[in-house]
Amino acid sequence: MFENFEWGADGDSVADSGGTVTWTVIAGGTSKGEIDTAQHYAGTRCMRLYRDGTNTPFALFSKTPLVADEHIFAHFRKDDTSQLFLLHGNGTYAIDVYLNVDEHILYWDTAGRDTGATVAINTWYLLEIRNVNWTAHTYDIYLNGSVIKTGAVMFTTASWANTIQFANNAGTSESWIDDIEIITFSTPTYSQLVITTYSPSSILNIISTPTALNTLTLRPNGAGDETSISTQSPSEDEHWDKVDEVVADDAGTYVITGALYYQRDLYALPNHSTESGIISSIKIYIRCGHGYNNGRAKPSLKCNSVVTDGDEVIVHEEWTTTSQQWNLNPSNSLAWTWEDIDSLQIGVALKTA
């Protein structure tokens, strides 16, 4: 499930439900849950929850209780007086996480419990609920991919059963929500990337023995200029270290998205060392798997400030390695140089079909 609110016009009620889920809005007075084009995490619009100072707006859709390998993600932004809630229940217990007026992130069991995490106003963040356990009545809370609370205790209540709800419950204020995803993590989309350069030792080598090529393999060693893929697993550290292994570990470490539009990561590479000669080509390898629906992937690179995406491949259930070769630098249509290689970033663009 993915809802990015890329539908409707500014000010339309989200109850018009032009996306992937059917929304219900509960809002008295002049409070509202509406499409807003002034703010957006990605794309051109998002959902705005406006509170008129008296009436709390709720926006909700039906969802059976999350199971252990289902995680919910939502990007959010708040002003300095709003109190934004994410609510979900099974009829006996409920997840109740909220971004308080003081910008602290709390959850409610029998009282408000501060996670210790804070946010800045008018800034987009990614909130995630993972590892939901209705038997133990616990769940984990993540902010921007990092855990801020493990084993958060559920609230005992019949409220919010079989729904996911967002509410703004303080002041005359605004909150914004965008790119809501529910992903089954037992069936991730994953990419493992290496880049290979082929470098004959001399021009004479090319002329006399064109098959006698040396291969330099470079793997990600740092973050590049773009980290847009929504999620990584495990959530600790950086995206690049989920795709740097010599032997692919498939579902052990990966990056993943449930977005219906492309999200891209770029990764830094180490410089070459003693290699020299003419570079005949570079090749980027990606390894992907997708267990619940066909996904799409493209190898990506950045050189001379120009980002290039390769050909789209369909991602199937089985882990599969694909590659694409560039004989010339796509940023200038010239032969590759070692300066190009030392400044090169590689990556992957992913989306769910």
Rank of each mutant, 00 (worst) to 15 (best):
M1G: 06
M1L: 11
F2M: 00
N4V: 14
G8S: 06
D10C: 02
D10L: 08
D12W: 14
S13Q: 10
V14H: 01
S17P: 00
G18N: 08
I26F: 03
A27T: 05
G29L: 05
T30Q: 07
S31R: 02
K32D: 04
A38D: 12
A42V: 07
G43Q: 02
C46N: 05
R48F: 15
D52Q: 06
G53Y: 10
N55H: 09
P57Q: 09
F61V: 00
V67W: 04
E70S: 08
E70Q: 11
I72E: 01
F73Q: 00
H75P: 00
R77A: 06
D80I: 10
S82Y: 11
S82F: 10
L99P: 00
V101D: 13
I105Q: 01
A111R: 12
T115W: 03
G116R: 06
A117L: 09
T123D: 09
Y125M: 09
L127R: 00
L127N: 01
E128W: 05
I129V: 14
W134K: 01
W134Q: 02
A136G: 07
Y139W: 04
Y139G: 02
I141P: 00
G151C: 10
V153R: 00
M154I: 03
F155V: 00
T156R: 02
A158M: 01
A158S: 08
A161G: 02
A161N: 04
I164W: 01
F166N: 03
A167G: 10
N169F: 13
S173W: 06
W176T: 01
D179I: 15
D179S: 11
I180N: 03
I180T: 01
Q192H: 07
Q192G: 09
Q192K: 11
L193Q: 12
Y198M: 12
S199K: 04
S202D: 03
L204A: 15
L204P: 06
N205T: 07
S208E: 12
T211A: 04
T211V: 06
A212Q: 12
L218A: 10
N221K: 09
G222F: 14
D225G: 05
E226N: 13
E226I: 15
I229S: 08
S235A: 13
E236T: 11
D237L: 11
W240Y: 14
E245P: 07
D250M: 14
A251Y: 15
Y254E: 02
V255N: 06
G258T: 12
A259V: 12
L260G: 13
D265K: 04
A268N: 07
E275R: 09
C288S: 08
G289E: 08
H290D: 12
G291Y: 06
K298R: 10
K302L: 13
C303L: 14
N304V: 12
N304M: 13
S305Q: 04
S305N: 14
V306G: 09
T308V: 14
D311E: 13
V313N: 09
V315A: 15
H316A: 15
H316V: 15
E318N: 15
E318H: 09
W319K: 07
S323A: 13
N327M: 13
A335Q: 02
D340A: 03
D340G: 14
I341H: 04
S343D: 15
I346D: 00
V348Q: 03
